[in-house]
Computed example of a mutant assay.
Amino acid sequence: MVIELLVSGGTDAVHLREVARRARVSLATIYKHFPARDDLIVTALERWMAANTYTDLAPPAPGEPLRDGLMRVFRYVFEPWERHPRMLEAFHRARTGPGGHRLDRQGMAAIEPVARAVLEGADPDYAGDIDIVLTHMAYALIGRFADGALEATAILPMLERVVFRLTADNAPDASAAVARRTGGEPV
Rank of each mutant, 00 (worst) to 15 (best):
Met1Gly: 13
Met1Arg: 13
Ile3Cys: 07
Ile3Tyr: 05
Leu6Gly: 02
Val7Phe: 04
Ser8Glu: 15
Asp12Pro: 01
Ala13Glu: 12
His15Ile: 09
Leu16Ser: 03
Ala23Gln: 15
Ala23Trp: 12
Ala23Tyr: 04
Arg24Met: 11
Arg24Phe: 06
Ser26Asn: 07
Leu27Ala: 06
Thr29Ala: 15
Lys32Ile: 06
Ala36Arg: 15
Ala36Val: 11
Arg37Thr: 05
Asp39Arg: 08
Asp39Gly: 06
Asp39Ala: 13
Leu40Asp: 02
Thr43Ala: 13
Leu45Tyr: 02
Asn52Trp: 03
Thr53Tyr: 03
Thr55Tyr: 06
Pro59Cys: 04
Pro60Asp: 06
Pro62Cys: 01
Gly63Ser: 02
Leu66Arg: 10
Arg67Thr: 06
Arg67Asn: 07
Leu70His: 03
Met71Trp: 04
Arg72Asp: 04
Val73Met: 07
Arg75Val: 03
Tyr76Gly: 10
Pro80Phe: 04
Trp81Val: 09
Glu82His: 10
Arg83Ile: 12
Arg83Cys: 12
His84Phe: 12
Pro85Asn: 11
Arg86Gly: 08
Met87Tyr: 02
Leu88Lys: 04
Glu89Gln: 14
Ala94Thr: 10
Arg95Leu: 04
Gly97Phe: 11
Asp104Asn: 09
Ala110Trp: 03
Ala110Gly: 10
Leu119Cys: 13
Gly121Tyr: 13
Pro124Val: 07
Tyr126Met: 15
Asp129Thr: 12
Asp129Ala: 11
Val133His: 05
Val133Gly: 02
Val133Trp: 03
Met137Phe: 06
Met137Pro: 00
Leu141Gln: 05
Arg144Pro: 00
Ala146Leu: 12
Gly148Asn: 02
Leu150Met: 15
Ala154Ile: 00
Ala154Met: 03
Pro157Val: 01
Leu159Tyr: 03
Leu159Glu: 01
Glu160His: 04
Arg161Ser: 09
Arg165Thr: 14
Leu166Val: 00
Ala168Gly: 01
Ala171Trp: 08
Pro172Met: 12
Asp173Ala: 15
Ala174Pro: 00
Ala177Cys: 07
Ala179Met: 00
Arg180Val: 00
Thr182His: 07
Thr182Tyr: 09
Gly184Met: 08
Glu185Val: 12
Val187Asp: 11
Val187Leu: 14
